[in-house]
Design a protein around this nucleic acid. Structure first.
Lengths: 136, 136
DNA sequence: AACTTCAGTGTAATCATTACATATATGATA
DNA sequence: TATCATATATGTAATGATTACACTGAAGTT
């Protein structure tokens, strides 16, 4: 997605497309990683020397309100952020620390007696050792 | 579970059963809630006037190492702790803020191509509105 | 009783996040 | 174009959970 397309996308969600906002979105979109604010800052500061962490926090807050981005925590004490694309769970490998996106199909997570609960969000975290690390 | 049984239980897991340790375990065991360190502190200080938060952190750390307790985060920035009993997911109601324990049966969370991944831990969080709040 | 070890406490440090005040840019209007 | 109003970006300081560390105190052993 190029900058123009991102600008349109943001406008459509009621967010004025400033340069930092576009770059932060692009960062999340292109990498498809699960960065912390610190990682975003350390990478984007090369591109935007005046960038501040506050701007990143503000921008991510906007994105989250517009349901463009969601945040989650993986037991560490730093939030991680990612573009919302489709339902998937996260697998974190304890050896290499990579975080895998794992698609899941419609799973019935609630037993019968919870049928009347309204579910707005599902987050699934798996922890273990990934195939690559197990082979070594 | 009375204090003696807890003391034995802790010993069996290599933890010397001091009074604060027993009371912290008992707290988690009896309430079956998902307290933060702050909640534990505010409640137990009535029982143990000299209790310090550091002791709670240390004790919970011990319990976690002995796999008696696990911690998780629900997007806020405070860890929550609970006795490990059986696999269940957490449902947080956005209205009343209660956290429900929801049992789940063996769900296949990994598609075929991840068959070789070793899963050590599963955490499932659901967010939404509970039946009681919906009825109001 | 003296010694050793482990448990508990208090204070201070760390670090992610938020609050706030200021500066800068943008866009509309005259 | 100049001016004004508003939104955006920035830097600094405050907050608050967690951790580090050093000291105190209890329990058990010889």
């Amino acid at each position: 997605m190029d900058s123009l397309a991102i600008a349109d996308h943001l406008k459509n969600h009621g967010i004025k497309p400033s340069y930092p906002r576009i770059q932060i979105y692009k960062y999340l979109y292109d990498r498809r990683s699960h960065p912390t604010v610190d990682q975003i800052y350390n990478d984007l500061i090369k591109l935007i020397p005046t960038l501040s962490k506050t701007t990143i926090y503000n921008t991510l807050g906007l994105f989250i309100n517009a349901t463009l981005v969601k945040s989650f925590m993986l037991d560490e004490n730093e939030k991680r952020y990612e573009i919302i694309i489709h339902d998937h769970s996260h697998f974190k490998c304890e050896k290499c620390n990579s975080i895998y996106d794992i698609p899941y199909d419609d799973i019935d997570l609630l037993p019968q007696q919870y049928n009347n609960f309204q579910i707005d969000e599902v987050q699934i975290f798996l922890r273990g050792i990934c195939e690559d690390c197990l082979e070594q």
